[in-house]
Structure formats: C-alpha cells, structure tokens
C-alpha cells in the first residue's frame, strides 16, 4: 500500500552542535527503490544526516519521516524498517560471524526460526558462508564490511543506510563491496554516503551533493555525468607538429575551441570543445588516421569532485 509513496521525507532539517551547524535547513525526498548517494567532503554533514535518519540522533529542528513514521516520535517503527551500518562499521569483535548475526537478528525482533533462516540467507548473499564460524576480530577488513552489510540486511529492511561503506578497504575489497551494494538496489532502497565520486557513479541512481551542511545539488547520476564531462570536452595526445594540429582541428565542423600544448618528445596535447554537445572523439580519431599521425590517448575531459565543489560553491557565492 505504501508503493509509490516516498520512503524518506526530510523537511527543513537542521542539526546544531554547540558552536557549529552540522546540517543546515536541508530538505529532500527519496522514493522507494532508489539508490541514493550522499556525496561530500569530510564534515559536510553526511554522517549526521544519516544518524538522524537512523533515529540515533534527534534533529534540532525540521521533520524527518521514514516510511511515513516520524523518526523522533516513532523511533521503533523506523528502526524496524531500516538496516543501518554506522561509519567505521562497528562490530563485536569477540563474537563469531553467525553468532553475531543471530544476536543482531534477535535484537531486530526476529524469532529463532525466522532468524536462523535469515542469517543463512544473508550469509549466502554476502559471501560469508565460508567464514561463518570464524571470530570477527580475526577477519580481514573486507570480510568485516560484509558482516556489517549482512547485519544491515538480516531483518529484510525496506531501507538500507550505509555510512561510508568502502572506507579503509583495499581496491579489491572496494570492488566486491560495491557490487554487493549494487545488488541491494534491486530489492531495497539504499542510501549511502561517500566522499568518492566514482563510487556514486558506479552504484547510485541519484546523488545529493552536500557541502557545509547544505545540499548543493541533487542530480540523477546521468546529469552528474553531464556536469562532470565539461560539456563534452575531448583531450587527445597526438604525435604531430603543433601548427599542423591547429590547422587540422580549428576549422572542423562541430569544434568550438582548440588548444594545443606541447608534451614529451614530439607529442602534443590537443584539447577540443564541441559545439552543442557533439561527441568529437570519432572526428579526432578519423583525422589522425587520415593524416597518418600516431594517436596514443583519446579521452573525454572530466571534472574532479573538487572542481565540482569549486564550481558549485562559486555559483552559490555569485547568487548570494
């Protein structure tokens, strides 16, 4: 019956700590089935927002509803519906994996039989079956992260909240955790926080960019891609004289601006901006082939997260 209704509704949420405002008048809505990333540098207010959503901290003002229940007035109703993995994934390191998940399933109100079934399911789902009788403290960080995820999922929550799920992992572990999170999106609504841009691109359908407690931008990930792609700018590294490159590309249809910078040896870096979003990569490749130039790299120019922040905050300052 709740289908179609948003699972999270946040209105004018503010959280002040003595001497600083962590979250400043934030409003957003998250629909069922979305995978949403909170993106922002450290101290942007991501964790605080997630803690309020998980009904761990009270808000200073504003209202937060999860599945229609107020997080402050009906915390138990909210907690039953969310699986929350706090920052740094705290676990009881002295317990064994299965024992820990059973313990958590009991706390979350599952009966013995149902708890056992669910623990088996999440062990399987998170690839923990082989280590189910190991002591958590002796597991690698990657496995511990999976235990945290399994804990968040054990009571089949509608909403899964993950605070920095890949922090401190090695690249291999990051990859496996990301693919797990991506899978979650098929069955649950997922909200995660991160300060890594590529994580949001890989796992999320929508992104909220936070900076100093405010939402700077809320985009679908494709739109974020647009912001990032610098309007379709293309960068190529070609072995050719600079003047010849200038002549070749300047007057091509679809090219707005051309810039050539010398690199090592006879290579030059050519940066081209297109007119109205044309993809210039095939044009560059065709040109290089026709003239017999060696093309060693051809990429689209991208902004870094830092660039986006600078860009967005500059916009804000101008508006104000």
């Amino acid at each position: 019956m709740d289908q179609g209704k948003p699972i999270i509704e946040v209105e004018n949420l503010t959280k002040r700590y003595p001497g600083r405002t962590a979250v400043d008048d934030v409003s957003f809505v998250i629909g069922r089935g979305e995978v949403v990333g909170f993106l922002g540098p450290n101290g942007a207010g991501k964790s605080t927002t997630l803690r309020i959503l998980a009904s761990y901290l009270p808000a200073t003002s504003g209202t937060v509803r999860v599945a229609g229940h107020d997080v402050f007035h009906e915390p138990d109703e909210v907690r039953r519906r969310i699986g929350y993995m706090p920052e740094n994934n705290p676990l009881h390191l002295d317990m064994r994996v299965r024992e820990y998940l059973k313990f958590r399933s009991r706390l979350k109100g599952l009966g013995w039989r149902r708890g056992r079934e669910r623990v088996d399911t999440v062990l399987e789902q998170c690839g923990l079956t082989g280590v189910s009788s190991r002591i958590i403290g002796q597991l690698s960080k990657g496995y511990r992260q999976r235990v945290g995820l399994a804990d968040a999922l054990v009571h089949e929550p509608d909403l899964v909240i993950l605070d920095e799920p890949t922090i401190g992992l090695d690249p291999h572990q990051i990859r496996s955790v990301r693919s797990l999170v991506k899978d979650l999106g098929k069955r649950h609504t997922v909200v995660l926080s991160t300060h890594i841009l590529s994580e949001v691109e890989m796992t999320c359908s929508r992104v909220l960019i936070l900076h100093r407690g405010r939402i700077l931008a809320a985009d679908r990930t494709e739109d974020l891609e647009q912001r990032l792609s610098l309007g379709g700018q293309v960068v190529a590294e070609i072995e050719a004289p600079a003047a010849a490159l200038m002549d070749a590309f300047r007057d091509l249809p679809g090219v707005e601006t051309t810039d050539v910078q010398p690199l090592d040896g006879a290579y030059q870096r050519v940066t081209l901006s297109p007119k109205n979003g044309v993809d210039l990569r095939p044009v560059v490749f065709g040109e290089a082939r026709a003239r017999g130039w060696t093309l060693r790299e051809l990429t689209r120019g991208r902004r870094s997260l830092e660039d986006i922040f600078v860009h967005l905050t500059r916009g804000k300052v101008k508006e104000e």
Binding site: A54, D76, R79, I82, P86, L107, G109
Partner: peptide, 8 residues
Amino acid sequence: EALMTTPV
C-alpha cells in the same frame, strides 16, 4: 550506535 538503532 549499532545497538541503539535497533528497535530495543
């Protein structure tokens, strides 16, 4: 934090 965000 993990304990106090369960329905106990």
